[in-house]
Nucleic acid binder design. Structure first.
Lengths: 221, 221
DNA sequence: CTGTCGAGTTGATAAAGGTCAACAACACTG
DNA sequence: CAGTGTTGTTGACCTTTATCAACTCGACAG
């Protein structure tokens, strides 16, 4: 369930708008409350988006990699609802939204792309809710790894051998678990011979079995 | 966080497209896998959307009431991703999506409305993830009741006195809890004198305190 | 080279919520 | 109007995951 534009789609958008911006690791593209002016296509790097509650709790709501588009949360209220933070030195392509709306009036293809990208985000969020509401810790971690794997594959990288860009705590926040639980689950999956985990480096040993572990498993919670 | 169009917005859409459809209680507007052709504005009644996993598990992802718009999950893949089911006899207004896209090219206001409605859904989903990932049972139930309350208020109904349209099981599925937990939490909130629960009828006794219980409370999970 | 800090792992224990089961209150059916 | 199915409540018990704490490993600073 990767969200975002294909290479072809991306280049189409590229021609219409432009302006790149470098974001250093740890820096934000935008923060909650910032005025919304643009959406952003990730050209290079890795981001998380994070929602914060009044009481200080915060939740990672998404990770974005090359080719994916973020910032659409800001459209409705003209104000961003979450923080978008680079997990490594990154580059985004800024797409001024009102220009995009104006141009998309003239280029129906572009309009349709935009709608699809937004809809894909809605679908992805629903899958996320399913995960948070109906899966247990181990299943969530497996789903997370398989999802990353698939997205790396779609970008031409190795599907079974990759590096995590985020900490255990960020994974935990994303999955609605504590970092200790994430760590234990990794260890457990490793003991079972399903994955190999060495700090941030992940190797999927038996992706097929991981997949069946997801689709089997009744009950849950 | 109500999603949907205001009266004025709704009537605008009304003039552009139309065709009402009655949906009896328990019937679906669309089901997962159905070809996507339209989005739907709720004119009357109450709906849930539900995602189903391969293994039979299912999760209620949203409730929709009068004035709210559903079906946008289908845009990206031209296929619906969830089931939309009426919780009472209802009526929706069908908005053929490709027509909408064509017309919105000529009516920029309409285009902006569409984008806002879609973005509102994204924001709402992120709030939902926050709830599922970071709140405990009691907080989730409180957030759910306050959200309903606010949406009834926005529609001119009593904010502190309303009837639930869904079962405990549907609430549980939506909140990532079991129906027993929902039931117990209702009983507990009643014992505390915060709400009054009689089957499906809810009366909020101390909405102010409920609100502080949400924004206070650190930790969570 | 030593000290400190952040990230990660692992263990012991506690708490939250799930599971199973019994039962009550209704609504619907024959 | 008795019988059955659905919905909701409550209790006893158990599983999962959180919490707290100790410890390792590197990276970086002085």
């Amino acid at each position: 369930m990767p969200i975002g534009l294909s290479e072809a789609e991306l280049s189409l958008v590229d021609n219409l708008v432009g302006e790149r911006r470098k974001i250093a690791r740890g820096e934000a593209i935008f923060r909650s409350g910032d005025r919304f002016t643009a959406i952003y296509a990730v050209k290079l790097g890795f981001f998380k988006t994070e929602v914060l509650a009044e009481d200080g709790r915060h939740q990672v709501t998404s990770f974005y990699m090359t080719g994916e588009v973020l910032g659409m949360d800001g459209i409705s209220a003209e104000t961003h609802y979450c923080d978008a933070i680079a997990l490594e030195d990154s580059e985004v392509c800024l797409i001024p939204f009102h220009e995009l709306e104006m141009i998309s009036v003239k280029v129906p293809t572009l309009q349709r792309h935009l709608h699809r990208v937004m809809s894909r985000e809605i679908v992805r969020d629903q899958g996320m809710m399913m995960m948070l509401g109906a899966m247990r810790a181990e299943e969530r971690v497996i789903a997370f790894l398989l999802n990353l794997s698939q997205r790396y594959l779609a970008r031409g990288y190795a599907a079974t051998d990759f590096n995590l860009r985020m900490t255990r705590e960020e994974i935990g926040s994303y999955l609605g678990l504590k970092l200790e639980t994430v760590s234990r689950t990794f260890s457990h999956l490793q003991d079972e011979g399903l994955v190999q985990v060495e700090k941030k480096h992940i190797r999927l040993i038996d992706a097929a079995r991981l997949r069946t572990m997801l689709s089997q498993e009744g009950a849950g919670r």
